[in-house]
Design a protein around this nucleic acid. Structure first.
Length: 141
RNA sequence: UUGGUCAGACGAUCGCUUGCGGGGCAACCCGCAGGAGGAAAGUCCGAACACGACAGGACACGAUGGUGGCUAACGACCACCGGCCCCGGCGCAGGGGUCAGGGACAGUGCCACAGAAAACAAACCGCCACCGCAAGGUGGUAAGGGUGAAACGGUGCGGUAAGAGCGCACCGCUCCUCUGGUGACAGAGGAGGCAGGGCAAACCCCAUCGCGUGCAAGCGCAAGCAGCCCCCGCCGCAAGGCACCUGUUGUCCGCAGGAUGGGGCGGGUCGCGUGCUCCGAGCUGUCCGGCAACGGCAGCCUGAGAGAAAUGAUCGUCGCCCGCAAGGGAACAGAAUUCGGCUUACGACCAGAUCU
RNA sequence: GCGCCGGUAGCUCAGUUGGCUAGAGCACACCCCUGAUAAGGGUGAGGUCGAAGGUUCGAUUCCUUUCCGGCGCA
């Protein structure tokens, strides 16, 4: 967990922490391919599927079903996960799509989701890179 | 229980998104402004809007159902009428609640069990008269008993062999007339001795209304692939020159066809744009009309438009509740074309009424 | 966003001119059969018919509202 920023002294990372449209997975085919061909990491409050995306940065895709809760609950969980991804985007393994599937649970602080994403990203990257020189070049979605 | 108000506030940092302005070849960056609800929900009704269908009529189907109003429209809303229930000691005046509240001589159907009998009317026990020694039979009666949710007006008196609206009084009911009311209906007067159960949220009849599908409607632009149709081998203005494949039994000429391919046309997938949100709503009024719903007038104020889908995250201060304190808590809930209602979920506060 | 189905015993399902006892199979309990099981036979228990309200003398059934599941439409 990073230090809580003092008031008036926000975190000043080396790079900007943006979250634009290019950092999201939008195509249904990308989701289907991640489910079918990608690797899976079982985190505590979510399940993360990984898939090489051919980009120079990580991308985030969210799948929050109605089992998680009502529209308010689902919106809030998506916002928390997006915030975690945004804050840790430079520490995540590049070139991997993270498809995050939510599970029903009590909300956690954003820091917990940050840890989950970073851990899942490193594990998925380790499983995707070794011995996968014949990894098919996936088209950029 | 009714009505109303709000939906913690402010600030900092980091973000998302729309519009405008500026910069950049571009990716993108900067500035300013805006950015969830009273129910955004359920999708139960009604409309706008769009496309399709459509001469008119009839049938079918669906919805509604006291009267009048309100409205763009409605099954919503308002007022009134009537029935039922409650309060008012009974009763009256009155007040409150509730009702899908047209039609049961247009027709069909159902009413289990019990009961003699459940809809044409009849008669189990009784009661009375007559016959008979008796058992019982014949006739009269529908008052009484009993069954049932419901049994062919109710109570009382007279009357009678016993009884019966058979007669009378009151109540109820039906019909007629008059009066009042736009009307549902109400009141008064008169006549009738009583007509004859319930169910139409059973089929149905009557009256009124309703075309179907829905923004994933629809309109425009339009990669790639495939299909259909047309043209084309290349150079050249043209004459002409050069050239691929197949067939014409071998070769050449000639003729016919084809062509991986190129171009065009229409339809149209991914996608993009549009529909898409500023001209209608809201608030206020010693204003006007109306009991009210609502309408009119005047003034003021106001801007979500996303599209794997924004409206957020963290921190601080203050305010509210619980707790001595540390600390904890703050409901229901997230726009998806837009409005008018209904229903459901739910926190706090204010005012009124009622109960304890 | 729009539309369409379903909810009955622990599970899977029946149940129409509204009334009869709300049934069937599996599962469960007990008994018989066997040296002991399984199978088989017999007996039995188990139901707010998703919830609320209404119509009716009477509702699983009819009507309205609501809750919870499921499906379809690009």
């Amino acid at each position: 967990m990073t230090a809580v920023p003092e008031p008036g002294c926000p975190r000043t990372p080396a790079r900007r922490l943006r979250f634009g449209a290019a950092m999201r997975v939008k195509s249904g085919a990308d989701f289907a391919q991640a489910y079918k061909l990608g690797v899976r990491d079982d985190a505590r409050w979510v399940v993360v599927y990984g898939r090489a995306n051919g980009c120079t940065h990580a991308r985030l895709g969210l799948s929050i079903s109605r089992k998680v809760g009502g529209a308010v609950v689902r919106n809030r969980l998506k916002r928390l996960l997006r915030e975690a991804f945004r804050l840790r985007q430079h520490e995540l393994a590049p070139g991997i799509d993270l498809i995050v599937v939510g599970r029903p649970h009590e909300f956690r602080p954003v820091a917990d989701y940050e840890g989950v994403l970073v851990r899942a990203s490193s594990r998925l990257a380790a499983r995707l890179s070794p011995g996968t020189g014949s990894k098919p070049e996936l088209p950029h979605g």
